[in-house]
């Protein structure tokens, strides 16, 4: 399946079914993330319910502190 993550195309494995799976796939599970799935902001508890389909657009932002 091919999806868009932060504007770039990304080929993900078959077993990546939902946003939670994508976070694990990208090894971002340790960070608090603000995630938009097809222009819809998700709450954390929605990550497993948000099913990914081919061509979906996902935006992921995390806060950092440096200045």
């Amino acid at each position: 399946m091919k999806i868009m993550v932060n504007g770039n195309g990304l080929e993900v494995r078959e077993d990546v079914k939902h946003i939670k799976g994508l976070i694990d796939f990208l090894e971002l599970e340790d960070k608090p993330l603000i995630i938009e799935h097809n222009q819809q902001i998700l709450q954390k508890e929605e990550h497993e319910k948000a099913i990914l389909e081919n061509g979906d657009k996902v935006e992921i932002v995390h806060f950092v502190g440096g200045g």
Partner: peptide, 16 residues
């Protein structure tokens, strides 16, 4: 909310 990674060529904007 705007973020980018210049090395990874990523640019992201989210309506928060």
């Amino acid at each position: 909310l705007i973020s980018f990674d210049l090395w990874k060529n990523e640019h992201t904007e989210i309506e928060v």
